[in-house]
Design a protein around this nucleic acid. Structure first.
Lengths: 290, 290
DNA sequence: GTTGTCATGAAAAGAAATTTTCAGAGTGCG
DNA sequence: CGCACTCTGAAAATTTCTTTTCATGACAAC
């Protein structure tokens, strides 16, 4: 095989499947901030990746280079090509995409959203919500609208594994009253309500409050009317170069919360996950037999 | 004097007058094709400039650097600054929280995932999938697993607004056969299959292929077995500082695809959205009256 | 012409980097 | 449980790079 025409990045990607654990770790470290991360000595990049220098040598040889110097020479050439070509310079996101490609515009927007959301986000709020979610004495209810229903479901699916006493309200409001009926004081209702705020969310929130439930709202920067009834509110930046709003950052916060809850109660969660694995195994078996 | 804030190029220029003949020769060689020409070893650049290695050492020390490695470190920094990714590392995303707060660690991980996913992503694949999705003659089917089901649903919900002839397969496989039965050649099956790859996805993909359907797979960097049957595959970086995988970047690509499809057929979509608005209005009215 | 100063590179010395070897850890399999 | 296998990094061996030393030659001043 020859590494001549393809970029080092391409070569790494095409070999990724055949790499071992330590080598993958190294490859990712190299691709992270590519190609600059490969500029230093073999010692430096081994340290940055948290692997040993022999691993580096083994990998570059596996990739088809003669040795580390050969590998680095290719990298230098690429750096040169990148720098001397002014178009490529503004095009570091997705390679071979015009600078205005939708992927690049989206990536820019997401980054901006993340930055703004996090700078506006109070970490105390985050920590408080995480601890409310971790409290197994509280019942958990998730609800979303037409679009955000998928986020509620995602959140619910994970929390259901982590802890008991968890429910997902369908986005169809007709079944809500029976859930509200079962809410106890201290229970937590997590509402996703973004942009075209759904009027019914306010009614739901009001009813839940009457039953003594705490409310957490995920909304956009303008704020759902339901946020007024909430104990904690996440205001997420949702703008995208699109006719639609972006849910990426909302999902980001959801995932961070999932991890926060999980790590705070890891021992219990571990047990549950094991049990769950076993159940899945049984189901699979059951299907095979049938 | 310190070389800290100024660029190496500036330093060379400001010292140019005090340089000797051989040093000037070297300086010019370095400035020519700056800063890439300084990337190699001292031997290499001495040869390129036609001077001896001691000359190089003497000059860089005269410029205020500790030695050649110090000089080169500065150069590397400059190269990095020149071509660094738009998403360079942040030490802290969320202010007033330590860099080790879960939000900050997650933000770092997500940005790394985004960077790597985009660098591995072929924009031709993206464009091709977008145009397949835009083709209203093709039926569209979406399916996800236990966790990724929410992503499939999100994708489906949007595409259903944009175009007709769209279906969501439940994550429960028992109902799949009837969908496969209805697939026509050229129809598109979008599969989300990440990490704990579900065996049934391969069966589904095989059955769909037999019916002449095209397959698009969203998977992780290791690749779902279903990807082998796919016309197009998105390999998404899903790692997070968490016991769970992150779906953030997958959602990112989904949203970008939604926008790509929508903008390519905006006129038709606009009409559909208006109609849909009207229908929602009626439903709401209906509920209020009842 | 002599002398001193400086620039320069060859070569040696010293310091790093790169590669190889090898043993222990881990993993899968019978 | 033991065997075979692979992966991995510590450490040694090797190579390469960097720095220092020093001899030579150019040039200017006297």
């Amino acid at each position: 095989m020859t590494a001549a025409s393809k970029t080092v990045s391409d070569v790494i990607h095409s070999h990724f499947g055949t790499l071992t654990r330590a080598e993958k770790q190294l490859a990712e470290s190299l691709l992270d901030n590519y190609p600059v991360s490969g500029l230093g000595s073999i010692t430096t990049i081994a340290e940055n990746a948290g692997v040993s220098t022999p691993t580096v040598v083994r990998m570059v040889q596996k990739l088809g280079f003669k040795g580390y110097p050969d590998f680095q020479a290719h990298l230098h050439q690429e750096v040169e090509a990148t720098i001397s070509n002014p178009i490529a310079k503004h095009d570091r996101w997705a390679s071979n995409a015009p600078g205005t490609h939708i992927l690049n515009r989206f990536a820019d927007a997401i980054m901006g959203n993340l930055r703004q959301t996090l700078s506006a986000l109070d970490t105390a709020t985050f920590d408080n919500v995480a601890s409310l979610l971790s409290d197994r004495k509280r019942g958990l209810y998730f609800v979303g609208g037409r679009i955000t229903g998928a986020l509620a479901e995602y959140f619910f699916t994970h929390m259901q594994v982590i802890r008991p006493n968890t429910a997902l309200l369908s986005s169809n409001s007709s079944s809500w009253p029976q859930y509200v009926l079962n809410m106890n004081p201290g229970d937590l209702l997590v509402i996703f309500d973004i942009r075209r705020y759904e009027q019914e969310m306010v009614s739901l929130a009001t009813a839940a409050r009457k039953r003594g439930a705490e409310i957490v709202v995920f909304t956009d920067q303008w704020g759902s009317p339901a946020a007024k009834l909430a104990r904690h509110t996440f205001r997420v930046q949702i703008e995208a170069p699109s006719a639609w709003d972006s849910s990426v950052i909302t999902l980001f916060i959801v995932e961070a919360l999932i991890e926060a809850v999980q790590s705070s109660t890891w021992d219990e969660t571990k047990e549950r996950m094991k049990t769950l694995e076993g159940l899945f195994e049984q189901t699979r078996l059951f299907r095979k037999l049938s």
